[in-house]
């Protein structure tokens, strides 16, 4: 079942065409990696899908609903969870409270002025933390957490709205190699078990080729290759972009 359908997506900054005519689809339960050298347009594409940038042209629909022109909070309401390249968490709150916030928002309970927030959705929050493997960190303050753990907090928060689609910008950036593999395992497991579509960018090619079901490769804003890891590995244009002209030999 197709969850995300993108076509003709374009964005220019001044004279620089950051993304041009990008199109792809993503199915439920599928891990799609978006790769490409620095400046290929990955972040721009992400920011258009999550509502921070408005594309110049093209369409992006989530299960038939257009995402274009919606604010990030509205896109979240459609069932899109996000993690950021540089983690964004509520640093003055504990790990559990971070997840509780997302749950409160999901259950529509934020506009309450009297009942204490700390007591709400505790069990559900504990459950989410267990699913991403950090149940024991629930009471720690986010401001003092190790970076790898923060990445998992973000994942738990992103799962709180029972998303159909996860947008993950460099999920393993800044983590130790061992942690990376473990986090990718967790993400892949969640996607398969809960039938969540995952679109992620990543610089760590081991993680990409080990876990992605499919890859799309961007260079200078345009899609140059798409397919299974094996197909992309064999693609001459990809080898050229990453290895230079001599890589085709």
């Amino acid at each position: 079942m197709t969850v995300l359908e993108v076509s003709g997506l374009s964005k220019a900054f001044g004279g620089v065409q950051a993304v041009r005519g990008l199109g792809f689809t993503l199915a439920a339960g599928e891990l799609l990696a978006m790769i490409g050298p620095n400046g290929a347009g990955k972040s721009t594409c992400f920011n258009m899908l999550n509502g921070q940038l408005r594309p110049d042209a093209g369409s992006a629909t989530l299960a038939g609903t257009s995402l274009i022109g919606l604010a990030p909070h509205a896109i979240w309401r459609l069932g899109v969870g996000r993690t950021f390249q540089i983690t964004a968490t509520f640093r003055s709150m504990s790990v559990r409270e971070n997840v509780q916030m997302a749950l409160l928002s999901f259950h529509g309970g934020l506009m309450r002025f009297w009942t204490p927030a700390a007591a709400r959705h505790r069990d559900e929050a504990a459950d989410l933390l267990a699913r991403v493997g950090i149940a024991e960190l629930a009471d720690r303050a986010c401001g003092i957490l190790a970076y790898g753990d923060l990445k998992r907090v973000e994942l738990a928060v992103a799962l709180a709205n029972r998303p159909r689609l996860l947008l993950m910008d460099e999920p393993t950036a800044g983590m130790a190699p061992g942690e990376r593999a473990a986090l990718m395992e967790t993400i892949a497991g969640l996607a398969k078990r809960e039938n969540i579509a995952v679109l992620f960018t990543e610089h760590d090619m081991d993680a990409v080729f080990a876990h992605a079901d499919r890859l799309i490769v961007l260079n200078r804003g345009a899609l140059i290759a798409a397919g299974s890891p094996a197909e992309v590995r064999a693609d001459a244009r990809v080898r050229e972009v990453y290895l230079g002209a001599g890589g085709a030999h």
Partner: peptide, 20 residues
């Protein structure tokens, strides 16, 4: 209350608050 937490959330990270 949840409202106050939402304010603190927005203060800590408007980016994350928007994303939830």
């Amino acid at each position: 209350a949840p409202f106050g937490y939402a304010l603190r959330a927005a203060r800590d990270s408007a980016l994350r608050a928007d994303a939830i």
